[in-house]
Design a protein around this nucleic acid. Structure first.
Lengths: 243, 243
DNA sequence: CGACGGGACTGATCTGCCTCAGTTCACGAT
DNA sequence: ATCGTGAACTGAGGCAGATCAGTCCCGTCG
């Protein structure tokens, strides 16, 4: 275990216990560091031959635009997350990617990735697991939008985000820094910004969570978990699954 | 090209042009044929060490149950689709799978799958593409539930289903057989069955589609595409992408 | 300094969809 | 023939969340 792990290494380490050799193989993937300013799209839907990225710092969101001008945010990515894996496989991006904050990311060439997996197959397993978890999150998101009301949905979202951030060392069970505006929350949760605002006020007045000044503070974890019908296990585990 | 291709071979063939050798490697995956009656779950959420399946005939749906008793159908699978790939990777199923009709499916052991990919890597590519397309469909579904109204959502769903069925030779641009009840449609689209019924009536009265007696008939394809904001390209293509 | 702009926040009104409570019809079992 | 069941279908009434039209606050820029 090194003192200063990258969020990516930290996240994969939660799935598969990593050796020193595997950790340095990961480090080598981080050579082509790039930065992106907040707000200007990194990837547009339809673009071909995009690179994949590993997010080192900052937040981004993946979204789709509809003809009516509305948008749906599919997911947020936080440090340690893989970006645009599907777009690479498919050769053409099927969604837009916008940095929420200033972002640092490592460009990953497919050939480097495959070579790394060839030499250290357990890393391949770990990345596959991480990708499966991301897919599971999209599914959970779908379920939430389809069948949970605004309060439940918001509560679930904040809990899930907290669990993800905790995994990469950017938050605790009690709170975390969150650069999202209420507009972005609305676009992610399929609600209007006006309604998000009221829901956040309700959750605050009920003593469950506050989300103000870029900080989420969880005041009643059990109450929130109950409201959201949140499965603590599906993101949460202590120690790697594969030793 | 064999005369009688399985739906799975037909679908993969749309992504990657397959040689005779590759086709027979596919056939060998179909040895452990099983059948399942309609209505009784094949897989329950939380089950461990499930097999994966390739659907040979019949329809199934993947869904999640919420604490309130409601359910959200995440996706339907039709012949040629892969079943439970994520559950296998993750070792434990994160959703339920219920046959909509009587179903025939080939059980696929992970080791057989990996061995096949080792010998015929282009098949691996094709399966990966198919999996990416499935993931893209879940994303599109999410967008629909989040930001499309009931009419658009229903129209989009019927078009997408048609495109998928056409790919495996079970439908045309004008219509297809569809064993889904309005209740299932409701659970998939995040609506009530009552409302689905009214929406279907409206679409029928507007001369766009009819869905009656297990048959979907598209009467005004352009109108429907326009209403649904349907991207004809993302599922539709003539001839394999990789020669 | 004042102007400007973007985010948080609010009240009033409207509406899409849900819920409840049915009816009708087709079909399989008794 | 009758019963039961499950799917399609309908009307009435209610409500969650959208939309409209703002105000207030704060940070930034000329």
């Amino acid at each position: 275990m090194s003192l200063q792990q990258s969020p990516f290494a930290r996240k994969l380490g939660a799935f598969v216990a990593l050796s020193g050799e595997e950790l340095s193989a990961l480090d080598r993937l981080h050579s082509r560091r790039k930065t992106f300013p907040a707000g200007r799209d990194m990837v547009h839907e339809g673009q071909v031959n995009q690179s994949a990225y590993i997010l080192a710092s900052g937040w981004v969101c993946s979204y789709k635009l509809l003809s009516g001008g509305t948008r749906q945010i599919v997911d947020f990515q936080i440090p340690g997350d893989f970006l645009g894996l599907r777009s690479v496989l498919f050769r053409t991006a099927d969604h837009n990617i916008e940095p929420v904050t200033k972002v640092e990311a490592s460009e990953v060439l497919v050939e480097d990735l495959l070579a790394t997996f060839g030499k250290t197959p357990r890393l391949g397993t770990a990345v596959l697991w991480a990708a499966s978890r991301d897919e599971a999150m999209v599914v959970e998101h779908l379920v939430g939008i389809g069948r949970r009301d605004a309060r439940e949905r918001t509560a679930h979202f904040l809990l899930e985000l907290g669990a993800r951030l905790k995994l990469v060392g950017l938050g605790t069970a009690l709170g975390y820094a969150c650069p999202l505006s209420q507009y972005m929350l609305a676009d992610a949760l399929g609600l209007s910004a006006v309604h998000i605002n009221r829901v956040l006020r309700e959750l605050r007045e009920d003593g469950l969570v506050t989300f103000q000044h870029g900080k989420v503070e969880i005041h009643d974890l059990d109450g929130l978990v109950l409201l959201a019908d949140f499965d603590r296990h599906y993101l949460d585990h202590d120690g790697p699954l594969l030793k």
